[in-house]
């Protein structure tokens, strides 16, 4: 999932303080699961912002809506009936959702309420960690299903470096050395040979280095 977290309320207030009628739009997918921008968080932020305004002797009207997916034009269309009543939109989706609203409603200002952090997985209740950087040419098949692109601080393809100590990365005791994890996993799978093979330099063109990416599926595209 895409993992995000809410911006400091102070920053959000800087965006919206000149207005008094906003449309607060949540998203029912990734950001709901990582507790950053689902229906519940929309309700909480709505109350917090209204209280912040009232404290200053002002009022803020908030229309709360949580879309099924904010990165999908089909659902963003549901805002049509509400958009005119709002001066600006505050989005609680990841950056993809914010941009979809900006694209659809060209005459309306939209502000992000979240910082989009990474693609990750839930480690345990309330803890999410980075797992993939969308490099466009997945090498998990060579690394025992553990990603060094996203999880090695130096993005080494032939790790570990000399900084790996006791299973930790040299940048912090709180960061696992992913190459230690890869080695342990290959060992338990009886695939030590795989580790001996040197990986050649990765072609980064399928990654962002080749510019913004797009996928066109001939069988689906209209």
């Amino acid at each position: 999932m895409i993992v995000a977290e809410q911006k400091p309320i102070e920053e959000i207030m800087e965006y919206i303080s000149p207005y008094n009628r906003i449309l607060l739009v949540g998203c029912n997918e990734c950001v709901t699961v990582c507790a950053a921008g689902g229906r519940k968080e929309v309700g909480i932020l709505s109350s917090a912002l209204q209280m912040a305004f009232m404290k200053e002797g002002k009022t803020l009207e908030v229309k709360e809506i949580t879309l099924e997916r904010q990165c999908d034009p089909e659902y963003v269309e549901e805002l049509v009936t509400h958009i005119d009543q709002a001066e600006v939109v505050l989005s609680m989706a990841c950056g993809c959702g914010v941009q979809e609203i900006a694209r659809r409603f060209s005459a309306k200002l939209v502000f992000p309420a979240l910082n989009t952090k990474f693609m990750g997985a839930s480690e345990r209740q309330g803890v999410w960690a980075e797992r993939c950087q969308g490099c466009g040419d997945c090498i998990l098949g060579l690394t025992g299903g553990i990603c060094p692109v996203a999880r090695c601080s130096k993005r080494l393809l032939n790790g570990p470096c000399g900084g790996s100590t006791g299973g930790n990365c040299e940048i912090s005791k709180d960061v696992d050395c992913v190459w230690n994890i890869i080695w342990e996993r290959l060992k338990s799978l009886g695939m030590e040979d795989r580790y001996e093979e040197v990986m050649t330099a990765k072609d980064w063109r399928p990654s962002w280095h080749g510019g913004p990416r797009k996928i066109i599926r001939e069988d689906l595209a209209e």
């Binding site: 309700g43 709505s46 209204q50 209280m51 009232m54 404290k55 002797g57 002002k58 009022t59 009207e61 908030v62 229309k63 709360e64 809506i65 949580t66």
Partner: peptide, 16 residues
């Protein structure tokens, strides 16, 4: 509560 008086006059909006 500093929001009290304004809160009383604030129009109630639908939520979705």
């Amino acid at each position: 509560n500093p929001v009290k008086n304004i809160s009383a006059g604030q129009s109630k909006l639908a939520t979705g």
